[in-house]
Amino acid sequence: MPVKLWRKPLDADKIPKLQYEVHIINERCDGCGFCIDFCPKDVLARAEKMNEKGFYPPQVINEANCTFCGFCRSVCPTCAIFPIEKISRNIKEVE
């Protein structure tokens, strides 16, 4: 169906939008920047402040965009970043 879909779906606001938080353990970060490069939704950017190790860790600039894909967690060589859900895991409760 090559019909162009241009509208915001009418029920778009009714869909429970899950919120996520990205946790960064600054002191663990080695500043490789993989998470920033790989994030598909541009949630992360380089922080302005150095950590104790002398690296620039990532900082969250656009948390609302996070879709919880977990890519950052997967690529981090030092396990210094992970996302978690802000609200209850059970979606049915939300509804």
Binding site: M1, V3, L5, W6, R7, P9, L10, D11, A12
Partner: peptide
């Protein structure tokens, strides 16, 4: 949703 011509998700 393509079936709903983009009117629904």
């Amino acid at each position: 949703n393509e079936f709903d011509v983009g009117l629904a998700t």
